[in-house]
Computed example of a mutant assay.
Amino acid sequence: MFKKKILFVASVPVHFHAFHRPYMKWFSDNGYEVHAVCNGDFEDPNIHKLWHVDFERSPFSFSHLKSFNQLKKIIDENNFTLITCHTPMASVITRLAGAQARKNGTKILYTAHGFHFFKGASLWSWLTYFPAELMLTNLTDAVICINDEDYDLISVKGSKSASYYKIPGIGVSSKRFMPISKNEKIALRRFLNFSQDDFIIIYAAEFIDRKNHKLIIDAIHKLSNTIENFKVLFAGRGVLLEKTKNYAFEKGVSDKVVFLGFITDIEKYYQISDIALSASKQEGLGINLVEAMMCGLPVVATIDRGHCTVIDHRVNGILYPQQDSDKLSEAITELYSNNDFYINLSNEAIKKASYFDIKNSLEQMSKIYKIYL
């Protein structure tokens, strides 16, 4: 029997791995043939076919014409019912390459995981990405946002021929990320070679400039005089990893920082930690903070559109100004020294994180899919 085809598009396979498996499964379970395209390898039991396209993330790469032709050929030859695209440059190319298919009935949805233009972004970002995104809404059936700022802007400025939606993030599994008891926490710490007496702080993020690990090292340098037994866990990899290690050494805090590398069981490290941090310069949402909150951690993060969607200041976490290591250090110290405040934030973090559960995200997203299928 002929099955209608669905195409997922993202620049890199890690995006599929991190966010899209539940949505691919939803389509497969509902009788659709699921295809995916990215620059790399990816396996999932719900994918019928994986296509390769040489996507580049830079907006100024000369290879975009090649990836446009590769993708256009795939789209033109497969008669997709719906294309759902993600990541900025891959989504630009998808909407251009799918323009003719869309005239023939294919629906194209774009999920914006955080526009590059936002309050506080550089003039260069606004001049580069904003006009392009406005133009491309004419080639898009629906734009899906994950924070209020993005939705409020694009729904007003974008083409009236497109529809606009906001969903509670792309979803986090509460079956994987959950609080554990005090005794379980002690046992897990022992298993992972951490002390029961350590005050553990965690930041899960790629080592790139936007994630701003340097700010956290500046802050914990100041903590040495106020908190004796603390550890900072950095989970992730990236181009600035070695520079960050060197900076920690220069600041004299190497003995306080543990570089975990890329790990597939991040939930265990949230569960042994006391608080989670973000120093990011900008986020579409801040999925790492949602994961930590589901495990019962109060979070301390920079003031940013994505973080403000997740964190209610001094209710389930603490927001601090961008580039302010003093305020970050003060927030950590307050959570360390005020147990009642800590417990209140922990309880509220669990409540707020439930809104971003994959069940809620998938339920809302499936309603949008059904409009266009």
Rank of each mutant, 00 (worst) to 15 (best):
residue 156 V to L: 10
residue 144 I to A: 09
residue 24 M to C: 06
residue 335 L to I: 03
residue 335 L to C: 03
residue 125 S to H: 11
residue 196 Q to N: 15
residue 204 A to S: 13
residue 185 K to F: 05
residue 126 W to H: 12
residue 209 D to W: 13
residue 236 G to R: 03
residue 53 V to F: 10
residue 143 V to Q: 02
residue 183 N to D: 13
residue 191 F to D: 12
residue 318 I to M: 03
residue 173 S to I: 03
residue 92 V to R: 00
residue 142 A to C: 11
residue 86 H to T: 02
residue 356 F to V: 00
residue 252 G to N: 13
residue 43 E to W: 12
residue 239 V to S: 15
residue 180 I to M: 02
residue 49 K to C: 11
residue 184 E to A: 10
residue 21 R to M: 12
residue 273 S to V: 02
residue 84 T to P: 06
residue 20 H to M: 15
residue 230 F to W: 14
residue 279 A to S: 14
residue 188 L to I: 04
residue 230 F to K: 12
residue 165 Y to F: 14
residue 295 C to L: 04
residue 190 R to P: 08
residue 99 A to E: 10
residue 288 N to I: 01
residue 364 Q to E: 15
residue 61 S to D: 10
residue 33 E to C: 10
residue 367 K to Y: 14
residue 307 H to I: 00
residue 210 R to W: 10
residue 16 F to Y: 10
residue 322 Q to F: 02
residue 366 S to C: 11
residue 345 L to R: 00
residue 211 K to S: 09
residue 348 E to N: 11
residue 50 L to K: 13
residue 38 C to V: 04
residue 234 F to R: 04
residue 68 F to N: 04
residue 308 C to I: 05
residue 61 S to W: 08
residue 103 K to H: 05
residue 146 I to D: 04
residue 347 N to G: 06
residue 121 A to K: 04
residue 244 T to M: 12
residue 42 F to K: 07
residue 130 F to M: 09
residue 21 R to G: 09
residue 281 K to F: 08
residue 126 W to V: 05
residue 317 G to E: 00
residue 236 G to A: 09
residue 29 D to V: 02
residue 130 F to D: 05
residue 296 G to Q: 03
residue 175 K to Q: 11
residue 43 E to K: 14
residue 263 I to M: 13
residue 67 S to R: 01
residue 18 A to K: 11
residue 245 K to E: 15
residue 331 A to Y: 00
residue 297 L to Q: 02
residue 140 T to M: 08
residue 126 W to N: 08
residue 2 F to K: 11
residue 256 K to V: 07
